[in-house]
């Protein structure tokens, strides 16, 4: 569906995307995971055929965006990072006019609008003005809008950024249903839980490059341990710095990461790590054992956290 080889994007002297290879297959749900500024949105805009590529190769649905932009855009659905809804029109009218942009007959659009309102649970809000909707509702409306042409590929740029946890879950639920219906989904996110929930396969991006690729599970298996023990130490007046503490427990796990507020000890048995920490007379104010996540993968690969 999407094929990129050595894809690059620069804005003046700044290189946002520095040569990436991507293959997205029909029916899969593919993610770009990375922090802000990793080049995810620039990549998405190129794939959406609204931003010319600066180098490399890009084919979307077998077409070249430089020559067939309009034909590509007729067959994809785009949910941009920032809502581009017309806030002074009603929910229904926003969907209706959008359907018309794709050249769909009026009757057909009306039928699809009703169907999509139902799907994103906005039927009751059909005649409300968009400016009166909550952030989560606007997002769902934007998702509905991106489905009006029954796209072959759905592009979602940070679909839940800025939403409260409850609204995020509603959006995830809808996206999960689409995925089950076999819609090919490409999404960017800087939330590792979002990537884990929605992506069959993902690439981890950092500074314009892909640093790892695989399913969430294989990535975690390859780049992290099964469990992580998180240790929080209070600020001891004469106490050791985090670095010094880390050295004292370095042998307890495969690896120790020092974060500003806590230490992460990577091990296959977190409880065991904590027991040994206590044995050594160290007294963390709080401890937590959890499974490794994509966040740990990112930390391992780049030395930084996803959300700063």
């Amino acid at each position: 569906m999407i094929l990129a080889r050595g894809l690059r994007k620069s804005f003046g002297d700044f290189e946002a995307v520095k040569g990436i290879d991507v293959d997205v297959r029909r029916g899969e749900s593919f993610g770009f995971l990375g922090p802000n500024g990793a080049g995810k949105s620039s990549t998405m805009r190129m794939v959406a055929a609204v931003s010319p590529i600066s180098g490399g190769e890009l084919h979307i649905l077998g077409m070249d965006p430089a020559d067939d932009g309009p034909s590509i855009r007729a067959r994809i659905g785009v949910c941009p990072q920032e809502d581009t809804l017309d806030t002074e029109l009603t929910v229904r009218d926003n969907l209706y006019v959008y359907g018309r942009y794709f050249g769909l007959p009026r009757k057909e659009v009306r039928a699809r609008v009703d169907e999509l309102l139902e799907f994103v649970q906005l039927t009751e809000k059909a005649d409300a003005m968009v400016e009166d909707l909550s952030g989560g509702m606007k997002r769902r409306l934007t998702i509905a809008r991106s489905l009006i042409n029954r796209p072959d590929v759905l592009l979602l740029d940070e679909p839940t950024t800025g939403l409260d946890p409850q609204a995020r879950h509603v959006v995830w639920d809808r996206l999960f249903r689409l995925k089950q219906q076999g819609v090919t989904i490409v999404l960017t996110t800087h939330y590792m839980d979002e990537a884990e929930q929605l992506c069959d396969r993902l690439v981890v991006m950092d500074k314009g490059l892909i640093v790892a690729e695989g399913s969430p599970l294989t990535l975690i298996r390859e780049h992290s341990t099964r469990e992580v023990a998180e240790l929080r130490f209070g600020v001891a007046p004469d106490g050791d710095s985090h670095e010094a503490l880390a050295e004292k427990i370095a042998d307890l796990g495969h690896r120790v990461e020092v974060l500003p507020d806590r230490l992460l000890v990577y091990s296959d048995d977190g409880e065991e790590v904590i027991a040994r920490v206590h044995e050594r007379g160290l007294e963390p104010v709080a401890v937590l054992v959890r499974r490794s996540t994509l966040e740990d993968v990112f930390l391992r690969l780049t030395g930084r956290t996803l959300v700063d």
Partner: peptide, 14 residues
């Protein structure tokens, strides 16, 4: 402000 043009040009419209 409401960026409606960006919505339009994300479709087949030029």
């Amino acid at each position: 402000w409401h960026k409606a043009y960006f919505g339009m040009t994300a479709t087949p419209l030029s």
